[in-house]
Amino acid sequence: MILEIPVESYNFSAAGEAASRVKKTLQRLGIDSQLIRRVAIATYEAEMNIVIHSDGGKIILQVDEEEIKVQAIDQGKGIADLELAMKEGYSTAPDEVREMGFGAGMGLPNMKKCADRLEIKSVVNEGTTVVMGFKNQS
């Protein structure tokens, strides 16, 4: 099964819809609820990073017997220093986004905690690809 959902930059009324669709799809497939919760949190963080930090992109959900795979692919400024970006508390989120409650610098650390594997590839001024894998227990 494969599902591809576009994500717009800075569209805060639509933001979260991709993660919501991923969650509903997994529920329909009868995936364990604790596993869905981890996928939903990580996907929402990844989606918000596309909305806030990139020029737009997409979320791709792939489910097979072994793994639930979520990819967050965007075009944009990219991440210059990945190690720094992964640090808890590091954030370059602008003030207007902080007022909405984002910018704690906890998104990437949360994704790492939720996923069984996390790979990030980023090219400055091109974009970022985040791949998260979750062992499918069913």
Binding site: I41, E45, F102, N110
Partner: peptide, 22 residues
Amino acid sequence: ISDVLAFTKEKALLLTGLTNPQ
């Protein structure tokens, strides 16, 4: 928001000053 996602358990009640749709 990231704190809420990281530390809040299922079925919990959230107390917050954030009022946007997110």
